[in-house]
């Protein structure tokens, strides 16, 4: 009983973390229309920043340390986004994709080669259980608490992004994504809009990284490899590039499939690695707009209410 509960709690927490990754990737790829393939780098930056603070400020009370480390995770990832964003955003299309992918790989190589006593190097490092001060255990209460925190973070991120996209800077960004030249002629600075999207997106990916590190209790460079990047991509392509609520559904579909498959015998479970890129390729060919396209769930409910019968 408790095992089943733990499984589903774990699944939902993971869905939440992937939702954060997906909405932030979607802001950059979907809404801003930039083909960015280095999101796993921001995720790793966040996770490692949070871990570093947790390891080095152990005297602080646990919950405070938890919050501070998440803030640091966001800040470090955002700085990463800014550093890579400014030079790379002049690039377009596949060139941008490759440059950002290069960035993601650099982050991974950097943590892999870090001194063992600093970030754990290629073996990874443990993350002290600072939430233990609240939950006393890493079982059900810990997962419930993390789930609540992750859910709040997701809700906050979606709300912030939604309001941003409806604000003036957000509209500017959408205009730039539609037609950079035309937007430029209207007096919009495309680079500024794009950097803004990049920084916001990377900060949220960093937050996901911090939450992930605390939840897992240990991280290593292999957690943040390119496969994860492609998986995030599958989430936003399933949900629909440019749809925030699509991200939640996409994250649920991908994570639930993965984790349920993992309960199957190894011979079947290992096909997941072949299956998910295959699904992504098929989606791209047959339904590139995803399940939701650019629509939001709220739009659909509204449309459904309005329709007669």
């Amino acid at each position: 009983m408790s095992g089943e509960l733990l499984f589903w709690l774990n699944l939902l927490v993971t869905v939440g973390i992937y939702t954060l990754l997906a909405v932030s990737l979607n802001l950059i790829n979907g809404h801003a229309g930039m083909f960015h393939l280095g999101h796993h780098g921001f995720w790793a930056l966040g996770a490692y920043a949070a871990t570093w603070l947790t390891l080095n400020a152990a005297s602080l009370p646990g919950p405070l340390l938890y919050v501070l480390s998440l803030l640091l995770a966001m800040a470090v990832a955002a700085i990463g986004g800014l550093t890579i964003g400014i030079p790379c955003l002049r690039l377009r299309g596949d060139y941008l994709a490759i440059a950002t992918l290069g960035f993601g790989e650099i982050v991974r190589i950097a943590v892999q080669n870090s001194p063992h006593d600093f970030l754990g190097g290629s073996l990874g490092t443990k993350v002290p259980r600072v939430l233990m001060e609240v939950t006393r255990t890493t079982q059900v209460p810990f997962r419930f608490l993390t789930l609540a925190i992750v859910a709040v973070a997701c809700a906050a991120a979606i709300l912030v992004f939604r309001n941003f996209l409806r604000s003036l800077p957000g509209r500017r960004l959408l205009a730039v994504a539609q037609d950079e030249t035309a937007a430029g002629l209207l007096g919009i600075d495309p680079t500024r809009s794009k950097v803004l999207a990049f920084v916001m997106g990377s900060a949220v990916a960093g937050l996901a990284g911090g939450l992930y590190a605390h939840y897992m209790g240990g991280i290593n460079p292999l957690n943040f490899n390119f496969m994860e990047m492609v998986k995030m991509f599958l989430v936003i392509v399933l949900g629909g590039m440019g749809s925030l609520s699509g991200c939640v559904i996409g994250a649920f579909l991908v994570v639930a499939t993965e984790q349920l498959l993992n309960r199957a015998p190894e011979a079947i479970a290992s096909w997941w690695q072949v299956l998910f890129p295959l699904i992504l390729a098929l989606m791209i060919v047959f339904r590139p707009q995803g399940i939701f396209g650019r629509k939001e769930i709220t739009d659909m409910i509204r449309a459904w209410r309005r329709s007669p019968a």
Partner: peptide, 24 residues
């Protein structure tokens, strides 16, 4: 004819699929 980005994503997927088939 689906565009360069779609083609690139497909290529990334093909790469992962081939890698994992080789592992199998």
């Amino acid at each position: 004819r689906a565009g360069r980005i779609a083609a690139l994503i497909t290529a990334v997927c093909v790469s992962l699929i081939l890698q994992n088939l080789a592992i199998k």
